[in-house]
Amino acid sequence: MSKNFEIRREVVLNATPEDVFAAVTTGTGGWMFPTELDPGVGSEGPDDPAVIAWEPPQKFAVRQEGPDGWFNALEYLIEARDGGTAVLRYVHSGIFTDDWDAQYDGADKHTTFYLHSLGQYVRYFAGRAATYIATGGPAASADPGAMITLRGALGLSDTSTAGDTVTVDVPGFGTVDGVVDYLTPHFIGIRTADALYRFYGRNAFGGTVDAAHHLFAAGADQEKSQDAWTSWLDDVFA
Score class of each variant (00 low, 15 high):
residue 135 T to C: 11
residue 223 E to H: 09
residue 64 Q to S: 07
residue 94 G to K: 00
residue 235 D to I: 11
residue 163 G to Y: 07
residue 109 K to H: 11
residue 28 T to P: 00
residue 37 L to G: 02
residue 38 D to H: 07
residue 94 G to M: 12
residue 32 M to E: 11
residue 8 R to I: 03
residue 51 V to T: 10
residue 118 L to M: 12
residue 230 T to S: 08
residue 234 D to F: 10
residue 180 V to G: 06
residue 73 A to M: 13
residue 30 G to I: 13
residue 20 V to K: 15
residue 52 I to M: 06
residue 4 N to Q: 12
residue 173 F to Y: 15
residue 172 G to K: 01
residue 120 Q to K: 12
residue 119 G to V: 09
residue 221 D to S: 09
residue 94 G to P: 04
residue 170 V to W: 15
residue 128 R to Q: 11
residue 49 P to I: 07
residue 24 V to Y: 14
residue 157 S to L: 04
residue 198 R to N: 05
residue 136 G to T: 04
residue 88 L to C: 10
residue 213 H to E: 03
residue 62 V to F: 04
residue 182 Y to V: 08
residue 193 A to S: 15
residue 226 Q to M: 10
residue 213 H to D: 03
residue 187 F to E: 14
residue 123 R to W: 00
residue 201 G to Y: 05
residue 165 T to K: 09
residue 173 F to G: 02
residue 72 N to R: 08
residue 145 G to T: 04
residue 92 H to D: 05
residue 214 H to R: 13
residue 10 E to C: 02
residue 69 G to T: 12
residue 85 T to Y: 03
residue 54 W to Y: 15
residue 238 A to R: 13
residue 189 G to T: 06
residue 45 G to C: 02
residue 118 L to C: 06
residue 162 A to P: 10
residue 209 V to D: 14
residue 167 T to P: 04
residue 182 Y to T: 08
residue 12 V to D: 10
residue 224 K to H: 08
residue 166 V to M: 01
residue 115 L to S: 07
residue 76 Y to I: 15
residue 134 A to K: 09
residue 73 A to H: 15
residue 233 L to Y: 01
residue 179 V to W: 03
residue 216 F to N: 05
residue 52 I to R: 01
residue 73 A to Q: 14
residue 155 G to R: 05
residue 27 G to Q: 07
residue 106 G to T: 07
residue 5 F to Q: 07
residue 82 D to C: 02
residue 54 W to T: 01
residue 22 A to S: 11
residue 112 T to M: 03
residue 15 A to I: 13
residue 215 L to N: 10
residue 109 K to C: 05
residue 122 V to R: 01
residue 67 P to G: 14
residue 238 A to V: 11
residue 54 W to M: 03
residue 141 S to D: 09
residue 82 D to K: 07
residue 85 T to K: 07
residue 191 R to V: 10
residue 36 E to D: 14
residue 175 T to H: 03
residue 35 T to D: 13
residue 110 H to R: 11
residue 119 G to Y: 14
residue 87 V to H: 05
residue 137 G to I: 02
residue 164 D to R: 04
residue 215 L to Y: 12
residue 186 H to K: 11
residue 231 S to F: 01
residue 136 G to E: 10
residue 207 G to D: 15
residue 76 Y to G: 05
residue 80 A to K: 07
residue 185 P to S: 09
residue 229 W to R: 13
residue 42 G to E: 09
residue 182 Y to N: 01
residue 7 I to D: 02
residue 74 L to A: 14
residue 35 T to S: 14
residue 101 D to C: 07
residue 164 D to V: 04
residue 98 D to I: 06
residue 216 F to R: 14
residue 147 M to K: 10
residue 59 K to P: 00
residue 137 G to W: 00
residue 163 G to Q: 12
residue 200 Y to K: 05
residue 165 T to R: 14
residue 160 S to K: 11
residue 123 R to A: 12
residue 229 W to V: 11
